[in-house]
Nucleic acid binder design. Sequence first.
DNA 1: AAACTTTCTTGTGGCTATTCTGCGG
DNA 2: TCCGCAGAATAGCCACAAGAAAGTT
Length: 379
Amino acid sequence: MTSSPKHAQEDQTISPQKRLCDYCSNATALLYCRADSAKLCFLCDRVIHSGNQLFSKHARSPLCDACDSSPASVFCSTESSVLCQNCDWERHRLSLSPVHNRRPLEGFTGCPSVSELQAIVGFEEVGHKTLFLSNESGGDEIDGFSDLFVWDPPFVVGLDDLIGSTDSAHDFEAMRVPPLPKNRNAACGQYKEEILNQLRHLMKLEPNLNCENVDAEPLASFQSLMPQQNEQPERMSIGFADNAEPIAFPAFEANAIQWCTDRDEAANQLCLPNSLKRKYLEENPVVPDKRLDTGGSVSHANDGIEAQSRYDPTKYEASSALQRVAPHDLNSQERDFAISRYKEKRKTRRYDKQIRYESRKVRAESRTRIKGRFAKIHH
DNA sequence: AAACTTTCTTGTGGCTATTCTGCGG
DNA sequence: TCCGCAGAATAGCCACAAGAAAGTT
């Protein structure tokens, strides 16, 4: 490890001016709403997205600690930062030690209560009482919660680990049950204090603002959406592979928080509009490297489910990524770089067809056709 | 600057023709 | 090694509402 959290924080220039809430232009923005293309503080997020059921469907994510302008999708516990995919890539690509502890970050929709917001940003074990106590004492106890944000990622044996195993960077303990994180969702990045401050502020206003009767059973609405803990070792062992069975999410309910991850259908419908994903993929420097990306036979791999059934993408991609880049052509650093890039790219890959506009799909399905082609409708 | 109108571009699914792949003679 | 066949995979076509962009008031 070349960059400790402290070091990372020194590198990080926290700039409140850049993070001003787009709505009130006053508070520090902590969330990003893709649908609104807006940076928002907790309060404005609440105000805006409790307005009606349609708005409440907007998927929000933590704001990237690095660029302050994009939705974060990765939490790096080594740097204690939440990062968007671009920044995550930039940072960890250049890092000489690519084994920072990172994990996908989950967004949310709906109109979360303070309790749920606590859970979302990783303060679920803090509790209301402690939150107020912390407030009364000026918030200096924030560091007292620091252990809540520590999560030692488990050593597990997955394909990715095996790919990188030749550099003997890992000491595998096959079959070892990974320790569960103290606070699975702790991912508040560099703005812990601001998050706590705004949570406290929200809590004071909660009786007036609460758009749901969730506090009767705080957290219940989204805890039920979380993977069972006893599933975690298995999920971990597959390294969040894209071809993993998606989590079965309940149907969307306007006021229920929906956890979004990159690996399930809900994520692609709620978290990141396909247009944005496409745009991101086009702009993201992660993607274009001819040596890795121009496998002709792979070019249609994301066209449909059929493609998925044709081969095991994990096995194929892993082996082909290494085969196409002949090992003897690369030194170990380049190889690590290529592999880490492959891993990053795989995180965002989807194999099922993505529908950008459901309304167009509905219309297309109901349109008259002649031999499969759309037919003119004569009025 | 905001509201409104017009023009241009995009995305959607079922079918078919074409291309690719594997196998046996 | 070449050829033919069968089956699988892929590309392209179609119309038009929705969305985006540009222009006007």
